[in-house]
Computed example of a mutant assay.
Amino acid sequence: MTAFKLAAVSAGLSKPSSTRLLADRLAEATVRRLGEEGREAEVAVIELRDLAVDIANNFVTGFPAAALREAIGTVTEADAVIAVTPIFTASYSGLFKSFFDVIDHDALTGKPVLIAATGGTARHSLALEHAVRPLFSYLRAVVLPTAVYAATDDWGTAGDALTDGLPGRIERAAGELAGLLAGHGPVAEAAVPEQVVPFAEQLAALRV
């Protein structure tokens, strides 16, 4: 049984980066949850900060440099993608958006994508729903229900009786991704498209 290929895309700009840390935590949790299902996974991490110049040049020349071409191949050939961006001005970073702009718009069709983001305060968390999720929905990816946002104050917290802390959100999202890849669970069932009955057949049935 072949190992799953996971591509973790981090758009963090600093080094070390909380965005990269969140990507690593999500990847580690997913690999562990898959291991509990008896499945193996290999993780390739893509640091977009190292590809910033290549991405800009690709827009000008129309051709990706070798490093960017390799990164694009890693994402498009992966079984699933973990995409993590810092939130700037209530949206994803320009570097994050630019990377997915240079990928063929059909390359992520049907591919599971776990979205996550980091930011200074919790008030930016809705950017995952109004900006990041629509981006991958437009690319026809299968976006996991749980999106993980990590504010500065979230690191090291355990949550309370009403909300999960960051570790709990990471575990829930990783469990959804592992379940989808393993081919069972409510997320996998929801991802199966319903059979569409042609309109002509529906009309014919009404006339009988």
Rank of each mutant, 00 (worst) to 15 (best):
Lys15Val: 12
Ala90Met: 14
Ala27Tyr: 03
Pro86Phe: 02
Ala80Phe: 01
Ala41Cys: 09
Val196Ile: 15
Ser125Asn: 12
Gly185Glu: 05
Val142Trp: 11
Glu129Ile: 08
Ala7Asp: 05
Ala117Cys: 07
Ser18Asn: 15
Thr157Ser: 14
Ala173Asp: 06
Ala200Ile: 12
Gly73Trp: 03
Glu194Ile: 12
Gly168His: 01
Asp153Trp: 11
Gly110Val: 01
Ser18Met: 12
Arg123His: 13
Phe88Asp: 05
Ile103Ala: 02
Lys111Arg: 13
Ser10Asn: 13
Phe136Trp: 02
Ala65Met: 01
Arg172Ile: 14
Lys97Arg: 14
Gly120Arg: 09
Ala107Arg: 05
Met1Ile: 03
Val192Asn: 03
Ser18Leu: 13
Pro86Ser: 00
Glu42Ile: 12
Ala65Trp: 06
Pro16Arg: 05
Ser125Ala: 15
Glu70Met: 10
Ala71Glu: 05
Arg169Ala: 10
Ala158Ile: 13
Lys15Gly: 12
Arg133Lys: 08
Leu181Gly: 01
Gly175Cys: 10
Phe99Ala: 04
Ala71Tyr: 06
Ile55His: 01
Glu47Pro: 00
Thr163Gln: 13
Arg25Gly: 10
Asp54Gly: 09
Leu6Trp: 02
Val43Ala: 04
Arg25Pro: 11
Ala66Met: 12
Ala29Pro: 11
Ser137Cys: 12
Arg25Cys: 10
Ala8Lys: 00
Glu28Leu: 09
Leu68Glu: 01
Leu144Glu: 04
Arg207Ser: 14
Val75Asp: 11
Ala7Leu: 05
Ala161Lys: 13
Ala3Met: 07
Thr121Trp: 00
Glu37Lys: 15
Lys5Ile: 08
Phe136Arg: 01
Arg133Pro: 07
Leu162Trp: 13
Ala90Pro: 12
Ala56Tyr: 06
Ala182Thr: 01
Val84Lys: 09
Ala41His: 05
Ala182Lys: 07
Ala65Asn: 11
Arg25Ala: 15
Arg172Thr: 15
Asp104Phe: 03
Asp160Trp: 07
Thr85Tyr: 05
Ala3Gln: 06
Arg33Pro: 00
Gly120Ala: 10
Lys5Ala: 15
Asn57His: 14
Val31Met: 05
Ser137Val: 13
Gly62Glu: 04
Pro186Glu: 15
Asp153Leu: 12
Gly156His: 08
Asp154Arg: 01
Phe99Asp: 03
